[in-house]
Structures are given as structure tokens and as C-alpha cells.
Amino acid sequence: MAAGSSPVEYITHHLANLRVGEGVMAVHLDTLIVSWVIATMLIVVSYYVGRRLSLAQPRGLQNVLESVLEFVDQQIRSIFPGRSHLIGPLALTVFLWVFFMNAMDLIPVDLLPWILSLFGVENFKGVPTADPNTTLGLALTVFLLVQFYNVKVKGLEYLLDFLRYPFGIWLAPVNVVMMLIEEISKPLSLGLRLFGNMFAGELVFLLIALLPWWIQWLPGGGWAVFHILVITLQAFIFMMLTIMYLAMAHESHDADV
């Protein structure tokens, strides 16, 4: 806690992004840079592990990534109808990327801002998933894919469904509103769930940081251990819902209940 500032100032300071530009045209540099660093890290690790795959004697990271991939693949097989080339890499990317972006939460809240403040950076928010731009961006991408596959798999039927469900063709205007709400609520809830969890987690860490230094280890340690569960669980939920929404997009209506 910076000396001389009130708790409210401290918290608002920490929840402000490193921003360039104004309004809708603004860019959160901290969110972008951290997520890019993580993405680059994932690409580099993937490249090196993918280059040195060993069939007979897998070791180290290959084992870890094999387990993760098999776990993801298992989830896909249990939900997703048929085979798709996109769903596997998509789900794996969601899981790994979101997991590591969430994991930024475990870095002490004051560490990165303090280091960067030495270089004159005023605000720095180190958890990209505590920024709705990231979570809604992911959710929106998934939403676009869902719409794309809905149209691709069901064609005109999909658009007609907006008129016919859930109340039948005679209540078509009501149906359209209901279906639109349902479709739009999917990416919204997907993105906001992750954002809410990460933002709240960050906020609790900030509140703990306001406590006297000699007691911080107790709630801080406890919350960090609990948060390991939260970041994993949220990454998993985001991945599962992504698979689920895409699976629903690939199912024809006859297979629906």
C-alpha cells in the first residue's frame, strides 16, 4: 500500500488499466501486453515441445501437455457430436490461455505495479481476465463461431428456428425476441462469469493488501490457495461452455430434446 493514499484511492488506482486513447478507441496496454506475453510463451513452448515429441520416451513438458490434451480431448468426445478439426485446438487454447491469464492473479498485487512504477508507469493491472475486454473478446469470438456453425450446419432452418421456437409459429415476434435474448445471453454470461470471478479475486487480494502487514499472510495465503482452485475451475468452465455451445451449434434440431 502506497504511503499517504486512502484505501479507496489505493483500490481504484490498482483497478485502473494502463490506458492509451480515450473512450471506445482506447487500448488497455497492460491487458494486451500481459496476454501477448502469455500467448507468446504458449506458442514458444508448444513449438519446442511439438518439435521434440518422443513416441517411446515422452518426458517433462510433453507428458504434462499430453495429459492436458487428453483431458481436453476426453471432454470434447463426451460432448461434441462427430469430429471437428477446430474444436480441439480451440478448446485447448481457451484452457491454456485463460488458465495462465488467470494465474497472473497469484502474483502479489503490488509487485508488478511497483516494479513498473520505477519506470514511470502509473497504472498496471496484471490480470488480463480481470479486464472485461479480454473475457468478452473471447466470448464474442466463440459467439461468432457458434453463429457461423449454426448457419453452416443447419442453414436456413437455423434462421427459421428464431420464428418457430419456443412458442410456435403463431407467436413469431415473441419467439424472435426470446431467441435473441437466449443467443446473446450466452456470450455475455460466458464472458462476464470469467470476468466477475477474476475481478472479485483481484479485489479480495487488494483488500487483503490493505490489512496490517503482520496479518496479511493468513488471509492472503488462504485466498491464494483457494484461488488456485478458482483459476483452474474458471478456465475449465470457460472451455467446457465453449465446447458445449459449439456442440449445440453442430447438432441438428432432430437430435435436440
Binding site: M25, V27, W36, A39, N133, L138
Partner: peptide, 14 residues
């Protein structure tokens, strides 16, 4: 803001 589009692009590349 624009960060959202940036993240969507990063997502696609990743």
C-alpha cells in the same frame, strides 16, 4: 474498447 478486438485477434492467432 479496442482492447476487445485486440484480444479477439490474439485469440485467433493463438
Amino acid at each position: 474498447n479496442l482492447t476487445l478486438l485486440g484480444q479477439m485477434g490474439t485469440f485467433a492467432v493463438l
